[in-house]
């Protein structure tokens, strides 16, 4: 595949209460970001099992982005902080699978941070474009 044409595929788990609403706000403000980011709604960022991230990457996704509420905003007290702890485990797992750490990202995005969601999506896609396809891509 020609690097110029490489379009990374990103799976993004967004928490229902903050980040998913933040992505909606990006839409309301008609902010444009690349089509490569595919949002899956979860109730809380702490719902995302590390295996869900690793499986997505092993099955050929080029990157996974988890978005949760800012610390203190979690609808379930501290689910986002649990997600943060699990992120460390995820990073170690990526290493085991020979995947670059840039393929996974955890971000806090509030319901009013549409611009931030668009920005993070853009950055992630650019990073992955530079990095090239996942080695697990068929």
């Amino acid at each position: 595949m020609d690097d110029q044409q490489f379009e990374p595929v990103v799976v993004s788990f967004c928490c229902n209460w903050c980040s998913y609403a933040g992505a909606d706000a990006a839409g309301t403000a008609k902010m444009q970001y690349p089509c490569n980011v595919h949002i899956i709604r979860v109730m809380c960022s702490s719902m995302v099992h590390p295996n869900m991230v690793v499986d997505a990457l092993n099955n050929g996704a080029d990157g996974v982005l988890i978005c949760g509420c800012h610390p203190g905003d979690c609808h379930y007290q501290d689910g986002n902080l649990r997600a943060e702890k699990r992120a460390e485990a995820i990073e170690l797992m990526l290493e085991d699978f020979g995947l670059e750490p840039e393929r996974f990202r955890l971000e806090w995005i509030s319901a009013s941070e549409g611009p931030r969601f668009a920005q993070v999506a853009k950055e992630m896609v650019e990073t992955l474009r530079d990095l090239g396809p996942s080695p697990y891509r068929s």
Partner: peptide, 16 residues
Amino acid sequence: NLRNQCAWVHASDREG
């Protein structure tokens, strides 16, 4: 979510 998370945010890239 075809509107907020698709049509509104990718209008500049019709094919995509």
